[in-house]
């Protein structure tokens, strides 16, 4: 058993082109750490010192983890985690 993690196009360079990969861990942070051991550099694209990067959305099943516990959100085998970069911009 594992946690399925869906990877957006822009980050598939880290996963050898895979749309979805599997990982393990008790929290989102541990899961990202586990993925980073196999897909080096992925963690830096998802989080910074402050936590999850502002313009990266991470969903646990159907929920944005920002509205759950952020990086400390518990995850379990059978969950699906989806990563989607924010679509944002503007005149500034």
């Amino acid at each position: 058993m594992a946690i399925e993690v869906r990877i957006p196009t822009i980050l598939r360079t880290y996963t050898g082109g895979a749309k979805a990969v599997e990982g393990s861990g008790a929290t989102i942070a541990e899961l990202i750490g586990d993925l980073d051991t196999r897909y080096g550099g992925l963690r830096d694209r998802l989080q910074d010192e402050a936590g999850l990067r502002r313009f990266v959305n991470v969903y646990l099943n159907d929920e944005d983890v920002r509205f759950l516990g952020g990086l400390e959100t518990p995850v379990k085998d059978g969950d699906t985690v989806t990563v989607l970069p924010a679509v944002a911009g503007g005149a500034g």
Binding site: N57, D64, R66, A86, V87, A88, G89, G90, A91, G92
Partner: peptide
């Protein structure tokens, strides 16, 4: 989601729904 004259950001839940 920003409802702003100088910024836009897709609502995160709508983004998930539409991308799926």
């Amino acid at each position: 989601a920003q409802r702003s004259p100088t910024f836009y950001e897709f609502d995160s839940m709508e983004l998930l729904r539409v991308w799926r």
